[in-house]
Design a protein around this nucleic acid. Sequence first.
DNA 1: AATCCGAACGACCGATCGGTCTTTTTATCT
DNA 2: AGATAAAAAGACCGATCGGTCGTTCGGATT
Lengths: 207, 207
Amino acid sequence: MADGRKVRGQRSREAILGSAVALASVDGLDGLTLGRLAGVAGVSKSGLFAHWRDKEQLQLDAVEWARRQWIEHVVTPALAVPQGLRRVLALHEARLAFYEEGRLPGGCFFFAAQVEFDDRPGPVKDRVAEAMNDWLGFLERAIQDAVDRGELRADPAQLAYEIEALGEAVVIHSRLRDRPRAFAHARRAVLDRLRALSPDPTLLPED
Amino acid sequence: MADGRKVRGQRSREAILGSAVALASVDGLDGLTLGRLAGVAGVSKSGLFAHWRDKEQLQLDAVEWARRQWIEHVVTPALAVPQGLRRVLALHEARLAFYEEGRLPGGCFFFAAQVEFDDRPGPVKDRVAEAMNDWLGFLERAIQDAVDRGELRADPAQLAYEIEALGEAVVIHSRLRDRPRAFAHARRAVLDRLRALSPDPTLLPED
DNA sequence: AATCCGAACGACCGATCGGTCTTTTTATCT
DNA sequence: AGATAAAAAGACCGATCGGTCGTTCGGATT
């Protein structure tokens, strides 16, 4: 990798993937057009084929790129919070912060990708589903940790479904209805739920 | 409307809209292609322009058709249940039944339409947002009824957000993960929530 | 019987889609 | 300096997109 050409190639490759994920968060992974992507990324359309064999390969790498972005901005910050109930809440808050900061113009890459590909079998759907399984699995384990510590009484899979649903819905509601209220609802919903399920509510912040 | 030609025209118009809503529930309202729609509906592509000026007009009518379908299969059945807490639960259950019966191949027209158009200003987004406001407003009023009757202690807008989120999420989870478990989670989530908020849990079914 | 009109069709349009092929640029290696 | 290889560009391809146009067909009006 000391080769300056490959270094340059990797750089533009990453830049293109960043643009691809941003565009895909708006129009979806398939709604993403190679022509538009090339325009936004400032390269020629055929230049894309120097990095990817076809659109599907680019889509697969975009999923991977988005996964790393999610880990960096949602998972990692929450790891700074001690295990248990507080980390569960931290994960939810980190996601909401990710959305609220407008890090992606479409709000959430994976939300758009899931809706788009849930009916379209193939490698991209599989990769998206796998990434979501990883994330939900991580969320479930965080919940299980809290249960093991006696800070929570809950079925991890059930609670993970609820937190995921309440978190994802904010993407739509913040865009189609009132934005601040959508975030307020998403925050209160999970906070109230955790309070009701915890024997020690002092672990959670006040209103 | 005694004109047999117009009657025939209306019939095929409705049939086409039915196909359009079904296709749009899978690929989205914009992912819907006039060529494919014509093929599925058994008419020629140019035949579509006898009924609609352009694609946008067809999209707007498709939203309207989907709205009527939603009222018929979700709202109306729940109206058979007495006002109050039980009707709130009935609305949630009616939606889940609508999804579970597979009435639309993509699961939910409005879910797909919202995700697709939340970032795309224009008449179609406005119409979709309006339909969703109507539905959420109806849900809120049902909750308010239950509150007024003393069967529920809740902020209607907050609870409506939660029920909507927990209900919509099943579209994704049932397709990308385990289908029966997704429905089970969606049912339990709302049932538990209503139980916790109601002074009289006997109004709700046992497990 | 002649006329009229709405539904529907086939042919065709420019634009854009994903993708291929050839060439130019740029950095490395001998 | 010259050969080499990777990155990127440009021209171009068939297919499909949304949409137009002129025509045909069949039921309604007179």
